[in-house]
Design a protein around this nucleic acid. Structure first.
Lengths: 279, 279
DNA sequence: CGTCATTTTTGACGAATCGTCATAATATGG
DNA sequence: CCATATTATGACGATTCGTCAAAAATGACG
C-alpha cells in the first residue's frame, strides 16, 4: 500500500567496490592480514568475498564510531552498504559475530603496532615501555575499537560468534602472548631482569597485560570520573607500568632512569605520524 | 480479536510487595542504602516507590544472571514483574538507566566489602591486600554485576542514564577514591610506605584500581583465553598486586613476607561465609 | 551462444524490543 | 462524596533481529 521502490537498480556492481576500497580515508589501522593472503592461490569468488568483507568491516567501524556501541546493528550495516540483509548475514552470522570481526581488526592492528614499537632503539626495558606506549596509542586513536576487544569477550558475545572467528581470535591472542613472553625472555637473557622465585614468565605477561589493559580501559571509558580526570592522561600509563616494571625489579629502575624521556622519544621516533591524528 | 484479559485484577497491591521484599533469597549483596534512608521522613508514597525500586532492581539482577547481558530488556522486566510498561519506565528512563541502577547496586556492595576487609587484623599493607581480596571476591561472586560497573561507563550508556543516577554513581566513586586514598595515607603515616618523588597519592590509588580492575575483568571475562587459563585463578590477583605494591615500595615487600598466608587468613577470618557461595 | 545446475543475492516476513502517549485507575484533600 | 492530581495501564508505531523462499548471477558443458 505504501510507496514502491523507485530505484530497484543500484547495480553498479564493480566500480564502486574498488573505488570505495581504495578511497577509504577513515584513517584507522587496518592490519595487514589481507595483503599477506591476497597473493596466495584463491579463486576469484573467494577473493571477492574477502574484499567485500573488508569493505563491510570498514563500514561497521564507521557506524561504530558514529552511532556508538549499541547503535551498531546489522540492519544499519545493511542499509548503509550496497548489499542486502541476506548477503550481510552471509558474512556475519549475527551482530555479535560482526563485533568479533571488529575485534579481530583491532587485535591485528595492535599486534602491528607492537612490532613497530619493538624497533625502538633502547635497552630491553625501554622496548617494553615502547610497546606499552603503542598500546595506549591505539586505545586513544580508536577508543571504540579498543573497547571491542573487551566486549567480544563477554559470554553472550562469544557464544554467538562463529567458530571460525573464535579460532582466529584465539590465534591472535596466542601470538600476542608469545610476543610478550619473548620480550621478557630477552630481558632475562641480557641480564636486566631476574624473575623472582615466586613468579613465572606467564605471570609477568599477564600482570603487564592487566595493568596496561586496566589503565587504558579506565582512562578511555571513565574519562570523566573523578578518579581519572584528576590525573594527567598522557602519563598515567607510563607511571602505572613504571610501578609494575619496578615491582618486577626490571633494571634500570625508575629511580635510576628517566623513562619520561624514553616515553617522549618513543613518541617522536616511532609514532610521530600517528600521534598527529589524536587532536 | 484475540483473547480478552481475564485477570484485570492482579491488585494484591501490598502483601506481595512486602513478602517478596523480605523473602528475597537471591543471595547477592544488596548494599545498605535503603536502610539508612528508610528512617528519615518520607511520605508513604515515596517509601513505596523506593521499595518497588528495590524489588525491580532485584528482578533485573535475576534477569541479568539468567539471560546474560544482552538479554536484559525492560520488556522482559515488565513481563516478569507485577507492573506494566509505563510503571517500569517511571523508574528507569531507559534500558541503560536500568543498567546504571545495577551499577549502583554493585558499587555499593563493593564499598561494603571494602569496609569489612579493612577490619582485617594485620599491618597496613596486609589490609590493602584484604581490600583487593574483597574486590576479587565480588568479581567472582557476581561476575555479571561486576561487569555492569564497566559497561555503565560506556558513552552510549552514560548518555542515556538519568542525571540523578549519574550523580549517585559519581558520589559512590568519589567515596571509593577517598577510601583508597585514606588507606595509602595511613600507610604513609605508619611509616611503611614512602611515596616516591615522581608519584602522588592519586596516582597510587589509580594504579591499584587499574591493576585490580584489569586483572578481575580479564580473569572473569576472558577465562577461556590462553593467556589467562594458563594461570591459577585463585592467586593471579595476589601476584599482580604483589608486584604493584612492591613497585610502590610498600613494606614489607613480598620477598620479606608471606602474603599467600595473608591471603588465606583474609579468606578464613573475614570472608569465610561468602566464599562458600562460589562453588 | 544457449542451456541448465549451482551458488549467491534479494527483500519480505514474524518475532522481540524500544519508548511514547491517550486513557483508566487510584490517591488525596476539601 | 466529589473534584482534582497523581500514577498505572497497555496499545501503538518504529526499529532490529534472524530466516527463508524466490530471483538473479555465475559458470560448466554441449
Amino acid at each position: 500500500m505504501s510507496k514502491e521502490h523507485e530505484l530497484s537498480q543500484h547495480v553498479m556492481t564493480e566500480q564502486e567496490a574498488t573505488r570505495s576500497s581504495n578511497g577509504c580515508s577513515h584513517g584507522g589501522f587496518k592490519g595487514l592480514l589481507d595483503k599477506s593472503l591476497a597473493k596466495m592461490g584463491l579463486s576469484k569468488s573467494e577473493q571477492k568475498k574477502l574484499d567485500r568483507e573488508e569493505e563491510l568491516v570498514d563500514l561497521a567501524v564507521a557506524i561504530l564510531n558514529v552511532h556508538g556501541f549499541a547503535g551498531l546493528s546489522l540492519e544499519k550495516l545493511t542499509a548503509e552498504s550496497r548489499y542486502s540483509k541476506g548477503t550481510i548475514y552471509n558474512h556475519f552470522s549475527s551482530k555479535e559475530d560482526c563485533l568479533s570481526a571488529l575485534c579481530i581488526r583491532a587485535i591485528s592492528s595492535i599486534l602491528d603496532l607492537f612490532k613497530r614499537a619493538l624497533a625502538f632503539d633502547g635497552c630491553s626495558r625501554e622496548k617494553a615501555v615502547a610497546v606499552h606506549y603503542s598500546y595506549q596509542l591505539y586505545a586513544r586513536l580508536e577508543p571504540t575499537l579498543f573497547m571491542t576487544v573487551l566486549s567480544s569477550k563477554a559470554p553472550g558475545v562469544r557464544e554467538k560468534t562463529s567458530l571460525e572467528r573464535q579460532k582466529i581470535i584465539d590465534e591472535l591472542e596466542f601470538e600476542v602472548n608469545n610476543f610478550s613472553d619473548a620480550m621478557f625472555r630477552n630481558a632475562v637473557a641480557d641480564g636486566s631482569l631476574k624473575i623472582p622465585a615466586h613468579l613465572t614468565i606467564e605471570t609477568l605477561t599477564f600482570s603487564n597485560w592487566a595493568m596496561s589493559f586496566g589503565t587504558n580501559i579506565l582512562a578511555t571509558s571513565a574519562a570523566e570520573a573523578k578518579a581519572v580526570n584528576r590525573l594527567d592522561p598522557n602519563t598515567i600509563l607510563l607511571q602505572n607500568i613504571g610501578i609494575v616494571l619496578d615491582g618486577m625489579n626490571w633494571q634500570p629502575l625508575s629511580k635510576d632512569w628517566d623513562y619520561q624521556k624514553t616515553w617522549q622519544r618513543v613518541e617522536r621516533e616511532i609514532f610521530a605520524d600517528d600521534i598527529k591524528l589524536i587532536g
